[in-house]
Amino acid sequence: MPLAVELESVSFGYRPGQRVLEGVDLKLGEGEFVAVAGPNGGGKTTLVRILLGLERPSEGRALLYGEPAHRFSRRRTLGYLAQRSELGGDAPATVREVVSAGRLAAGGLIGPLRRRDRELAAEAIARVGLEEYADLPVRTLSGGMQQRAFIAKALAGEPSLLVLDEPTTGVDVESQDSLAALLDGLHSDLGVTIVYVSHEFGAVERFVQRLVLVRRSIVFDGPPSDLPGVWHDPSHVHA
């Protein structure tokens, strides 16, 4: 299986001497659906930022499809929903404007949106169930609905590697389940590689083949069913 992501003995600190991650080895094959879990401050966000080339490892190396992650040449195939994405400023962008921004890299930077970009945006809005709200300013929606708008933005770019950092913060159980089913569909029908970060992986647990627990280093990596019982609630990882 060709590799989408390869981290080789990666260590990282935001400041010299700090060790947020230490000796992390991680290989993700193309088409895998992986959940990354761990306690607050365990380094999940840092791990995905390194994996996407937003940060460079202090030691070790990070590869995307075999290329150094920070110089990856096919970035338009990457989708990222940052943790607690929020609108810069008070821009009264509508749901449609937010989701259409997801077509930016794939659809071309310059000039007006093409019809196909508009169709894909509308499709993504429908997938997260926000059709009725499409032309309302995002900031007038509830927190969970805002989050769904940003999930739709990430989907609209038709990424082949999709990284979602805590996408279900503030999202109700029903929508969590429908997101999980949606991701499962993307994964099995389109072969999208998905990295799903959450400290509650309940919703995706039945869909992922692989669970990675991060607490400074990788303390568990395997099928969720192999997870020792005490760890099942990942808030116990520090025990």
């Binding site: 937003l54 989708g79 821009a91 921004a101 997801g102 933005k153």
Partner: peptide, 22 residues
């Protein structure tokens, strides 16, 4: 006018745009 979409995209989600290579 020419740069409206990429500039608006950065306003909406800078990190997402950065990852996608904008």
């Amino acid at each position: 006018g020419l740069l409206y979409r990429p500039l608006a995209g950065i306003v909406i989600d800078e990190e997402g745009a950065r990852v996608a290579g904008v």
